[in-house]
Structures are given as structure tokens and as C-alpha cells.
Amino acid sequence: MKLSGFDISASALTAQRLRMDVISSNIANAETTRAAYVNGEYVPYRRKEVVMEPVQSNFSDILNGKLDSQGVQVTQIKEDPAPFKQVYNPTSPDADENGMVNMPNVDILKEMVDMISASRSYEANVTAMNASKAMFVKSLEIGRA
């Protein structure tokens, strides 16, 4: 399987778009204290992360020169194992006997940094795709002359 520059950029665009969707979900649920019902009680939303890896290729094909480039793929969306934040709010219906409420393990500042990173990666791949397109158009113009 040989990937062109378009295929590589397209795989990265798809992966970064999914990453932005997951980050948006994290931000939207940063205050959700009842995301799931587990073992008879409600638990807060748990932050999710996107895991990306290079497209798997056959090692013998690489050695034989059949593959000269790879793309990226999302292999999983996993939950962040970090502990929930504890906030004192005795008036909350989710408060325990000490007035503490488990809040999601989402840090808005970290999510915004991740969103900027994903957005910049997306833009870089759009730029690479446009550069490939411009080279194809130029080669067609040269061939016409």
C-alpha cells in the first residue's frame, strides 16, 4: 500500500479532526458530575484522550522499497486515569457527608492548549495538501507546453 502526499495529509486531517471533537467534548463536560451510573452511584465525566499511531505497514515491504511513506491513524480514545477533582460544595446534590463533590478531571487550560495544537496540526496538513495540489497543477501546465 503506497500512500501519496494527499493520502498522508488526509489521514492526518481526519485524526486531528477527531482529536478536536474529543477535546470539545472534554470542555463541554468540564462540570458534568453525573456522566455515568456505576455500581449504584453517579460518577463524574472522565477526560478522554486520542491515541494516534503511524499507519501499520509490512516490514518486508519497507525493506524491499515498496513503501516510502506512511499516514497516521487513531488507534483508540482512552479515558484519562487521573483522579477526580474534589471541591467543597455542601449544597450540591452530589456532595458526600463531608460536603465534598467529585468533579471531572478536566483542566480547561490543558484542553485549550491541546485544541491549539490540534488546530495548528490541522492547518499544517491543509497547507501540505494545498502545496501538493499546486505541484500537480504546475506539472500539468509544464506537460501542456
Rank of each mutant, 00 (worst) to 15 (best):
I23E: 04
E49L: 14
M52R: 14
K85Q: 15
S69Q: 15
N58K: 12
V38A: 09
L18M: 14
N39A: 13
G71P: 00
I62L: 11
L18A: 07
M100K: 02
F84M: 06
E41N: 11
G40I: 01
R46T: 10
N98P: 03
N39S: 13
E97Y: 08
N29M: 06
A82H: 00
Y88L: 00
E97W: 06
Q73I: 13
N29R: 04
R34P: 01
D21Y: 09
E97C: 02
Q70Y: 13
L63M: 10
V51H: 10
T33E: 15
Y88H: 03
Q86M: 14
Y42L: 12
Y42E: 10
Y45T: 02
N64R: 13
T32A: 15
T75A: 07
I62C: 02
E49G: 04
G99T: 01
S92D: 11
R47Y: 01
A95V: 06
F84W: 04
M100F: 12
R46H: 02
K78A: 13
T32R: 08
K48I: 00
E31P: 00
E53V: 04
V38L: 11
S92E: 02
N39E: 13
L67T: 13
A35S: 15
Y45F: 15
G40R: 02
Q86W: 08
N89I: 04
S24C: 05
V87G: 00
R34L: 06
N26K: 09
N58I: 08
V51L: 13
P83L: 02
I62Y: 10
S57Q: 02
R19M: 09
R47E: 05
I23Y: 12
N98M: 09
G40P: 00
G40M: 01
K66N: 12
T91C: 00
E41V: 14
E53P: 00
N58L: 10
D80N: 10
V72G: 08
R34E: 13
R17D: 03
A28G: 05
Y37C: 05
P90E: 00
P93G: 05
P54E: 12
Q73A: 13
G99W: 04
P81C: 14
I62E: 10
M20L: 11
G71M: 07
